[in-house]
Design a protein around this nucleic acid. Structure first.
Lengths: 217, 217
DNA sequence: GTCGAGTTAGTAAACACTTACTCGTTTTCC
DNA sequence: GGAAAACGAGTAAGTGTTTACTAACTCGAC
């Protein structure tokens, strides 16, 4: 009995040591790939950082690409930032929706910029393996924002502009903030903290989106 | 006299054939570095693309880094996009200033996305050599926009918000458009062409920036 | 007959990945 | 209960390829 582990790669429960090492390696790989990119990171250096030799690392991941894949899988499985603003979206509380999204993004990237850097490397280096992440996370986020804007336009609260462009305009402001900070290391460009920046972005965006007739005295 | 060439490695002036090759190599290097990054590009492949062997290429550039440096130098020397909107800025024509900047950026990157990609690689790979470009071009652009916003705030046309943050908010929308298109290859995300996108960005931004008292009934 | 522009054929290091081994801990079986 | 087989986790020392860069030669034009 209890013979078949069956689940392809995660029959944990009674194997804490091995699985823990795996996680440790992924964590270190995220740091390394974020710092120097996929091409710029060597297996030797990565193995050394977790206190192993190259050969030992290959017991956990069959190739460098498999490691990259594991990172993407982990990030796809992470909780979505959308859940936090879905309620506000149902209620039509524009400021709560956009401020929630902005703060959520700014703070989560601020506390761990690695994945933003990895995503940029991914785009530049054209890694196919990240496609599922884009489909499942980024696309979904864009569609959520564009869908919300479209609805509010129909309701007369927002002006009638292309919702896709507007969604990107907002997300662009937010993403750019973190690219400038964590890719170009110019933290001084934004003199204020995430909360104030989020506040400013949301104010500009919402006032810019408001339907002319609806907002005027 | 005019004896001392003084510039360490380039006493060119009378060597047109060689100089043309040099330019050709730089142009190809821009393409390669943009496509695969500095680390991802091999000298052999680059030399092959201009129809030379590796050794021949080393007659024009003493190292791979020198090639990178030459690219940065060329881009620093290129004409600035600011000149086109300086007049509108003096006149206080907000829409002309921001629409001019947006269109200028969107179109110049659209017609040649290479340097945007190189700059991102540069940020991620931490190339010191690009620092002068950031100081002389990007910093100046930011300061121009922030300065204009600050002035218009003082004049009562714009609301009183941090001009640095607002400048980045605007530039962020524009830059993001091109990152999504040319780094993540998702050209479908923006359904419209550069002109319409620029128009939308400027409308959102300017209406969002307008001082509340000044614009209302 | 020298010199600019190019070539062929290297070098040494770095890299992803492999092979064949070690060693301690379980598990199995009598 | 204890010998032995199996196994998990690791290492040392490679392999073959790729890479930036070099040395020594060729060839045509003024």
């Amino acid at each position: 009995m209890a013979s078949l582990p069956s689940s392809s790669n995660t029959d944990i429960s009674h194997r804490p040591a091995g699985e823990e090492r795996r996680r440790q390696i992924i964590a270190e790989a995220i740091r390394c790939f974020a710092a120097k990119g996929f091409r710029g990171t060597t297996i030797r250096e990565l193995a050394g950082a977790v206190g192993l030799t190259e050969a030992a690392l290959y017991r956990y991941f069959e190739s460098k690409e498999a490691l990259y894949q594991a990172i993407i899988d982990e990030k796809i499985a992470a909780p979505s930032p959308l859940s936090e603003v879905e309620e506000a979206a149902r209620a039509g509380d524009d400021r709560a929706v956009f401020a929630g999204l902005a703060r959520n993004f700014l703070e989560s990237i601020e506390s761990d910029p690695s994945f933003l850097r990895i995503l940029l490397y991914t785009g530049l280096e054209d890694h196919e393996l990240a496609a599922p992440f884009f489909d499942q996370r980024i696309h979904r986020l864009r569609e959520f924002v564009a869908g919300y804007i479209e609805r509010r336009s129909r309701e007369g609260a927002f002006r009638a502009v292309d919702p896709k462009i507007c969604a990107r305009a907002f997300l662009g402001m937010v993403v750019d903030y973190q690219i400038v900070r964590h890719v170009f290391h110019q933290k001084d460009v934004y003199p204020a903290g995430p909360e104030e920046v989020a506040e400013t972005f949301v104010t500009i965006f919402l006032d810019g989106m408001r339907a002319p007739e609806a907002s005027r005295g």
